[in-house]
Simulated scan of single mutants.
Amino acid sequence: MFSLPKPDLKNGVSDKEWQLRIDLAACYRLVSHFNWDDLIYTHLSARIPGTRHYLINAFGLAFDEVTASNLVKVDLAGNIIDDSPFSINPAGFTIHSAIHEVREDAHCVIHLHTAEMIAVATQKQGLLPYSQYSMFSLSSLSYHAYEGLAVDSSEKQRLQDDLGHTNYMLLVNHGGLTLGPTIGDAFMRMYDLQRACEIQIMIQSAGQDITPVPQPILDNIYKQANIVHTGSTGGQLAWPAMLRKAYKLDPSFME
């Protein structure tokens, strides 16, 4: 009941794929560490360089059980590539496949169900300019209306249309997602989005008059955010520190 298969792919895949597996497994562990996970649900995916294949978590594993070797390789249809003792949640890959299908720059997609993101996504006005964290997200944010469980393939086109060229999305009644050219970028974008939602809910719950960021400052911060933080530099600078944190928490993600 408590034992899991323990594949060892370290010497069975390319160096590039192995490093991607380490980074993605670390990202799963960090999501768990920050309490952003949802039992065995939600997903993080990453494209293997030079291919149309993707890595995603095995269905039934908690995020703190994910390792570099037990990540599952799939194609855009969710078909498992290579031998694996694990399966995936096909419904869980619907959102990821929709994004990977049309966004060549989306090498990593993170989709979560945190309470704060659901709360903000479900408000009529959505994310508001109440904190510096919201600036980063608002500069590239879209919304997608709830259509039920993501099992209908026809929803993919509508999600793609709503996403457009943005890097952050709030899924109404559902959660949120971020994407990026690297796992580090997608993670940092998720960190900013989550913090923005947490702070908005805290401010609103205080029952006091709220001071939003004035529009001229908002417009200028959009420019700064696009140049300084929401580009690849933000993820590249912070991600090595996050990898070190994941290693100190539990190095088994590298197995």
Rank of each mutant, 00 (worst) to 15 (best):
F2G: 10
S3A: 15
N11Y: 15
D15K: 13
L20S: 04
L30K: 01
N35L: 12
D37C: 03
I40A: 07
Y41R: 07
T42G: 06
P49G: 03
P49D: 09
L55V: 05
L55W: 11
G60K: 03
D64Q: 11
E65T: 02
A68Q: 06
K73S: 04
K73W: 01
D75T: 02
G78K: 01
S84A: 08
S84E: 01
S84T: 06
I88L: 05
N89V: 03
N89G: 08
A91S: 11
E101I: 00
R103G: 02
D105P: 00
C108S: 10
H113W: 12
T114M: 03
T114V: 04
E116M: 02
E116Q: 07
I118N: 06
T122W: 11
T122L: 04
Q123T: 08
K124V: 06
G126V: 07
P129Y: 11
S131Q: 04
Y146Q: 02
V151H: 03
Q157A: 15
R158C: 05
R158G: 15
Q160R: 07
Q160F: 13
D161H: 14
D162G: 02
V172M: 07
L177F: 14
T178R: 04
T182I: 05
G184V: 03
E198I: 14
Q200C: 07
I201N: 11
I201W: 05
M202G: 08
M202W: 14
M202P: 01
A206E: 13
P214I: 11
D219Q: 15
D219T: 10
Y222K: 10
A225H: 09
N226Q: 15
I227T: 14
T233I: 14
T233L: 14
W239C: 03
P240W: 14
P240A: 10
P240L: 08
A241P: 00
M242G: 00
L243Y: 11
A246N: 02
A246S: 07
A246F: 12
K248S: 13
K248P: 00
